[in-house]
Amino acid sequence: MIRVERVGPLATVQDLGRPGWFDSGVGAAGAADRASLRLANRLVGNAEGAAAIEVLLGGVELLAERHLTLAVTGAAAPATIDGRPVGAASVLELEEGQRLRLGYAMSGLRAYVAVRGGIDLPPVLGSRSRDTLSGIGPEPLCAGDLLPIGKPPRAYSPIDVAPVAPPADGLVTVDVVPGPRDDWFTDAAALFEGDWTVSQDTDRIGARLDRRSGPALRRRVASELPTEGMALGSIQVPPSGRPVVFLADHPITGGYPVIGVVVDADVDAVAQARPGQAVRFRRVGPPA
């Protein structure tokens, strides 16, 4: 068991999600930064999709109730064990009674804490992920929660640390495939002109953006669009003209036009962009 002693802005249990339920109106959810979750699990010898703790910004304290092997990845949140600083993206050993504390991140938005054996809460529709839009999955963590740990995998080749850079704290540049509704705008190219700023109201559903420089996005088609499917990374533009990049807990359908789609490889970077951070879109062609 691991006990949650303290929680910051938000901490949830996440794995790689529950794909395959779109026809029932259920989105995939899962870790907002999938690469960081996979890395944390690899460091402790878990399967890449094992459930871990996703921590928004930091502020979490965890108490080991037995010996545990952990790893912390993602946002650059300073970590300590009983007050002793420990490295990021490294393997950590906690003995019974020791505490892991995460301070508030210096860069990035979401950190991941993986435990060897995985967080073993009951799955819902095949996943232990919390979907903050639908309310499916384990409740967000609270102080006093006890989290069961699964059986450790047999094969385990430990390494000390993974040589990965923390998330960028400056301009985030991501590739975007235009469409399918870019023809609904008077100047769709305006999406790629100048920079955007991540809004304060960004969440696991989507990264909401404000214009930092350049022209606004204006609709050419005044009529409304029938509801259609929405993919991870879709850039939906509501009447305000402020685009929203859909993240892990995005709705599976929507009625506002999608001006472009962030390529899958860059969605994790958007999920780590903090409020106030600049984002630039770079146009790329559709895959062959």
Rank of each mutant, 00 (worst) to 15 (best):
G150N: 13
A77K: 03
V26F: 05
R219S: 14
P275H: 08
A273H: 12
D120E: 12
Q98L: 04
L92M: 08
P123K: 07
I159C: 06
P163M: 01
E65C: 09
Q236T: 14
E65G: 08
G254M: 12
V237E: 11
V124R: 14
L92A: 09
A32P: 04
S107E: 10
A77W: 02
G285D: 14
A231L: 13
T69Q: 10
G135Y: 02
A162W: 04
G30S: 06
V60K: 01
G137D: 01
D169E: 10
L94N: 00
A216N: 06
V164L: 08
L94C: 00
A114M: 00
D82Y: 05
Y112A: 01
V113W: 00
L141H: 12
G255A: 06
V60Q: 00
I81N: 14
G27H: 00
A222W: 06
M106V: 13
A111W: 08
R204G: 09
P138R: 05
D195K: 13
V91G: 05
L43N: 04
V263Q: 03
D249P: 11
A188Y: 04
G97S: 10
G117S: 02
S234T: 15
P153T: 12
I259P: 07
P122G: 06
G229Q: 12
V267G: 13
V245F: 01
H67K: 13
E193P: 07
T69G: 03
S240Q: 10
G194Y: 04
R99D: 07
E193C: 11
I2Q: 09
V91T: 15
D264F: 00
L247R: 11
A89N: 06
A155E: 12
R38E: 03
A189T: 15
S240L: 08
A28V: 09
E193M: 11
G58I: 07
R130Y: 12
D264Q: 10
A88T: 02
D203P: 11
F192M: 05
A207M: 13
D268R: 01
S127L: 03
G49S: 14
L232Y: 08
A207K: 11
G179K: 13
A105G: 10
L68D: 12
R242Q: 15
G276S: 13
V198T: 15
A248W: 09
D187K: 13
G260P: 12
L171E: 05
D264S: 14
Y256A: 09
Q236M: 10
D182A: 03
A79L: 00
R84T: 15
Q272A: 05
A248F: 04
V261N: 12
I252P: 00
V60C: 06
P178M: 06
P180I: 06
T12F: 05
D120M: 07
R34Y: 04
L232E: 08
R18F: 01
V113H: 00
P215C: 07
A75C: 12
L16T: 10
V245Q: 10
V124G: 08
S36T: 01
D183S: 14
T186S: 09
S157D: 15
G179I: 14
E228A: 14
L209W: 05
F22V: 13
P163D: 07
G74F: 13
I149E: 05
G170I: 03
V44I: 10
I136R: 03
A216D: 13
K151A: 11
L146C: 14
P85I: 11
L37G: 02
A271V: 03
H250D: 03
A50I: 02
S223E: 11
R42D: 08
P152G: 05
G150S: 09
R280V: 07
G58K: 04
S24M: 15
G103L: 11
